[in-house]
């Protein structure tokens, strides 16, 4: 006759947390920075088709690290929740806080339920307001904790080194260019060296309140990134080895970025759209 093991609840939770943390720390870091006109998200991501940063709604973005299938499920759930609420009520009734709450409850329940393996993910939910003071940045961990971040934050592997780098250099009210430069420098920072990451291996997207369209999310295209980063991301950077995945130069997901920017529906046509006005190409419903 065998005696059942006794595992203390503390030990059980510690084991689950260790498991989740280990999974997350294998991936690369993702940083989020508030700048003068919104929030920028940046990550090292050689795939141009599989995104870590995505649009949820007009003013809400989602960014995640960890297991792709798990955070992709969360992303889709977020889009569905937001669209459902926007359809049933009004576009203004979709809030980042509500979404962060729903994610927190979900991650928390999964973490503490015995039947499921904990999600190996960490997320950002960012929402911009009309002014920088009303911007919100929530960081969610694998166990459902929500942290209301201010200014900057990093998640994923090497998050501590990256976060420390940001802490020393972050300034409020930076321009988009400066914010992106800082974010990319931080991503390349480790305890031992500072790498330069190639523009084509970066995924950068912003919530930009200066956009005239109701949908404020846009991706920064590699060509624009290259301009911003200048020689700092020369094609000979050591990051080249990371690009093992044969990412096509223009994958389908990037195609909309080639289209011109949308225009406000009730205004005269704008000047030709800026080159960097990437996804989404579609004007959302106005009524």
């Amino acid at each position: 006759m065998s005696t059942p093991f006794y595992v203390s609840p503390e030990q059980l939770m510690r084991d689950r947390a260790d498991f989740a943390r280990k999974g997350i720390s294998r991936g690369r870091a993702l940083v989020s920075l508030q700048y003068a006109d919104g929030i920028v998200f940046a990550s090292e991501n050689p795939s141009a088709a599989l995104h870590k940063v995505s649009e949820i709604y007009d003013r809400i973005a989602f960014a995640a690290v960890g297991r792709y299938n798990e955070f992709e499920n969360l992303r889709i759930a977020g889009v569905r929740l937001a669209d459902m609420r926007g359809y049933a009520y009004d576009r203004r009734d979709v809030t980042g806080r509500g979404l962060a709450n729903a994610y927190a409850q979900t991650l928390g329940t999964i973490f503490s339920s015995g039947g499921e393996k904990p999600y190996e993910v960490e997320l950002f939910v960012g929402e911009i307001g009309d002014a920088a003071e009303s911007d919100q940045l929530y960081r969610l961990t694998y166990d459902g904790q929500v942290v209301d971040e201010h200014g900057f934050a990093a998640i994923g592997g090497a998050a501590e080194a990256v976060g420390g780098y940001l802490k020393e250099r972050y300034t409020e009210g930076a321009t988009l260019e400066d914010a992106i430069k800082l974010a990319v420098a931080a991503l390349g920072h480790t305890e031992t060296e500072d790498r330069e990451i190639e523009a084509k291996n970066l995924e950068v997207a912003v919530l930009d309140r200066t956009r005239t369209q109701p949908r404020k999310f846009r991706r920064i295209r590699p060509a624009t990134l290259l301009e911003i980063l200048g020689s700092a991301a020369a094609p000979t950077a050591p990051a080249e080895v990371e690009a093992a995945a044969p990412a096509a130069v223009e994958p389908p997901a990037e195609k909309p970025a080639d289209k011109p920017a949308e225009k406000p529906v009730d205004e005269a046509p704008l000047a030709p759209p800026a080159d960097d006005d990437g996804e989404p190409p579609i004007a959302p419903p106005l009524d």
């Binding site: 088709a49 995104h51 995505s54 649009e55 949820i56 889709i76 889009v79 569905r80 669209d83 926007g86 359809y87 389908p252 997901a253 195609k255 909309p256 996804e279 989404p280 190409p281 579609i282 959302p284 419903p285 009524d287």
Partner: peptide, 18 residues
């Protein structure tokens, strides 16, 4: 129309393409 607009935007966000 509201449903149709949401339909198009939803597809675009989920699939990453139009």
């Amino acid at each position: 129309v509201k449903l149709f607009q949401t339909e198009l935007e939803h597809y675009e966000k989920i699939e990453g393409t139009t």
